[in-house]
Design a protein around this nucleic acid. Structure first.
Lengths: 152, 152
DNA sequence: ATAATTAAGGATAAATTTGTCCTTAATTAT
DNA sequence: ATAATTAAGGACAAATTTATCCTTAATTAT
């Protein structure tokens, strides 16, 4: 469904929104550990997310790290997908046809149309903040279950 | 959403079901042209689809090629995904968590659940035959629009 | 039997995605 | 000012997906 890049982007953003404030930023290491993702790769993805102050904000130096502004928290989840150039899930033809529309539908078009609409709604009508609230409310998880490593 | 492999698999199977019979098989070349896919790669995918007489049937030699049996036509579209090992779209967590369920949901689980269900239903409750009928009924397309090439 | 045709299958290559490492730049605290 | 800390960014590496090519095996028609 989504690429690793998009998955990490979503997890990282939600995690940062959940744990960090501008006064108390989250470092790369904490993020990567928190969402169980490869550190350097996550750094790249966070770069995409911070580009043009899009979704995630960042600061270098001691006490630096990542956080989300109040404004960013109000963004739809779709903004995360846009930042990593993965909006196509919402628009693409299931069969991968370049052109697939009402006037030139693929054989699955009519059925898939409804699903695509719901996907779009999910990503557009849900804000990052809502996911954070959802997470705080109950027992939600953003990382893989810990499989305790033995000490060296 | 789906890999190229899965997209070609779906297109190829529908196309073969539409155009071929056991008496009048479709050759690899015709299939690849018909669905606008790379020939050799399509051959590999057709191999997966014919393995264990799963979805597509084939015969070598002159007048050989690919076709679908009546039984195969009744298979759910999901069978195609299974043949190319891509059923995970129906089951995987949107955020890519290894474990994501009612008892350990990711922050998007509740919302995505409904969509996943519909995806599953689409792939399970639609037979290959139905897609063929759909295709025959109206103006449906399985290939990309022809962009006429200039003669050499 | 022989030649022609077509899929099967193996080896390999190209492209893309995923991931790492190292240097630089910015910021903070001393 | 200096040292320490942290993200930014570039170059590179590994893994996976997508794609090609060539040989072999099976089948058909002559």
């Amino acid at each position: 469904m989504l690429s690793k890049t998009a998955e990490y982007a979503l997890r990282a953003t939600i995690y940062i929104a959940q744990k960090a404030t501008e006064e108390n930023k989250l470092g790369l290491e904490q993020v990567a550990e928190g969402i169980d993702s490869p550190k350097s790769f996550t750094a790249k993805i966070l770069q995409m997310l911070t580009q043009n102050d899009r979704v995630v904000s960042s600061a270098r130096g001691p006490r630096g790290g990542f956080y989300l502004t109040g404004k960013a928290r109000k963004l739809p989840v779709r903004a995360i997908l846009e930042a990593v150039e993965e909006e196509n899930v919402i628009t693409k033809c299931v069969l991968g046809l370049k052109e697939c529309s009402e006037v030139r539908p693929c054989p699955m078009h009519m059925q898939y149309k409804a699903i695509k609409k719901q996907l779009r709604q999910m990503f557009e009508n849900t804000s990052i903040q809502q996911l954070v609230e959802e997470s705080n409310k109950g027992a939600f998880f953003i990382s893989n279950a810990k499989t305790r490593k033995k000490k060296g």
